[in-house]
Simulated scan of single mutants.
Amino acid sequence: MRYKLFGRSGLRVSELCLGAMTFGRDDGFWQFGSDSAESRKIFDAFTNAGGNFIDTAFVYGNGRSEELVGDFVRADRDHFVLATKYSSSLEGDLSKSGTSRKNMMRCVEQSLRRLKVDCIDLYWLHVWDDTTPIEEIMRGLDDLVSAGKVNYIAISDTPAWQISRGNMLADLRGWAPFIGIQVEYSLLERTAERDLLPMAHALDLGITAWSPLAGGMLTGKFLDGKGEGRGQHQPMTDRQRTVTALVVEIARELGCTPGQAALAFIRQQDRFGTITPIIGARTLPQLQDNLGCLAVTLSPDQWQRLEQATAPDLGFPHAILQAPMIRDMVLGGQSDRFDNHRAP
């Protein structure tokens, strides 16, 4: 496992992040999780491979995930980069959900107790609620950093314009800025390339990708059409089948598993800076298979085949701005001679 700086910070994280959403099981919503013994095996396999970046959330396992992660890191707490999130809730109470300062303060105190730590390394806003003013969010998160309860802040599942607005406000007022974003990103879901990933590149934000295997579809295990009852609730679309079949074909060429080939594509996608896949697993063999992506490298031809087969429709205004006629008009007829790459 190699390491890198995360976004506009000195935070050093492993090139893969362990997602702990599957840690813990209850009798309600979170029945799909792993028990504590299997969760421990998954955690140990990840750390033995050199991983130090652990991602959980207030809501995962109805709180059990944070408790287990806290137990697992206790022997060497400072070795790990602990990330957790707030805003989502399973309690069905309006006052106990959302991104307000009130809920933020409630959640961070509970997360600290569950994790059994004095400080959270990376604190994520989990899901944008479209109601709380960005000023309230940024000031509240800055207060957590100033109080020493949080080292860095980041944001997940939020429109690009709100994230950039928040960081501009933080920069102007001297508050702690977001240092990273978390987005859904896989060969079956690349629409983050419209605005979120270019924004992250321009603002020097770390990028983590959740569901990099598209809920397991990219492993090829649902191609037989028998997905229902095995975690796949909806039938695969024609496009999903076509892309997954291509991943399986390229995996055969490489002598690796389809999941490893799909993760390799994300790891080699450097147009927007380094993207860190969040690998999650319910069983130890699943985690071990994911770790195998570290030894897989797609050839330029293989990468290009996947790139072309999964390229997203960027829509307006991106499509028109890339049109040769428009580029010639705005670049004085010299679009073929002009390099518009700008480093962050």
Rank of each mutant, 00 (worst) to 15 (best):
D195R: 10
A20N: 08
L5V: 02
T208Y: 02
R194S: 09
S95D: 14
A209D: 11
A251R: 03
M325N: 03
L115D: 01
A154W: 02
Q162P: 00
P300Q: 05
Y3C: 03
M138S: 02
A251D: 01
L90M: 09
Y60L: 09
D130L: 13
F53S: 01
Q162R: 13
G215K: 07
I278P: 06
C17I: 05
R8T: 07
D195N: 12
R230V: 04
L246W: 10
A343L: 11
L218K: 05
Q31E: 07
T257Y: 09
G280E: 07
D118W: 06
T47R: 04
R101H: 06
L144A: 06
S89V: 05
L314C: 02
S299C: 10
T84F: 10
I134P: 01
M236L: 15
R337D: 11
I134L: 15
G70V: 12
G148A: 10
R25Q: 14
A37P: 00
Q288D: 03
T283K: 15
I326V: 15
S164G: 07
G255K: 10
D157E: 11
G225L: 09
A209F: 11
W30M: 04
R241V: 07
Y60K: 06
P258D: 05
G51N: 04
G225H: 09
E136T: 07
Q234R: 14
Y86E: 02
H201D: 07
L291C: 09
V183R: 13
T257A: 15
A57I: 09
P344W: 11
D129S: 10
R165Y: 07
R173P: 00
M217G: 00
A319W: 03
D336A: 15
T237D: 10
S9W: 01
W124Q: 14
E15Y: 01
N48S: 15
D238N: 06
T191F: 05
S36F: 00
G280Q: 08
S39T: 07
T310A: 11
D44Y: 00
V183I: 15
N62P: 00
K41E: 15
A261L: 11
K4S: 06
Q232R: 14
S164Q: 13
G7Y: 12
G70W: 10
D195L: 11
S156R: 08
G216E: 07
E109M: 08
M199F: 08
L321V: 03
S299I: 06
A160M: 04
V247G: 12
Q322S: 12
A209L: 12
Q110F: 00
K226C: 04
S111G: 04
R327K: 15
L298E: 05
L112E: 04
G63Q: 05
R230Q: 12
I42Q: 12
G315E: 05
G98R: 06
I250R: 08
V243L: 09
G50T: 05
V145Y: 09
L284A: 06
G10K: 15
Q302N: 13
L254D: 03
D130G: 01
L196G: 00
F72G: 02
I163Y: 09
L321F: 09
D35C: 12
L291I: 11
A147V: 00
D289C: 01
Q308S: 11
F178V: 02
A160S: 15
K96Q: 12
A309F: 10
I134Y: 06
E253I: 03
D121S: 05
G10Y: 02
E253D: 15
N290Y: 03
V13L: 01
G259H: 05
Q334M: 14
L16N: 03
I163S: 07
T47F: 11
V127W: 14
E135F: 07
P277A: 09
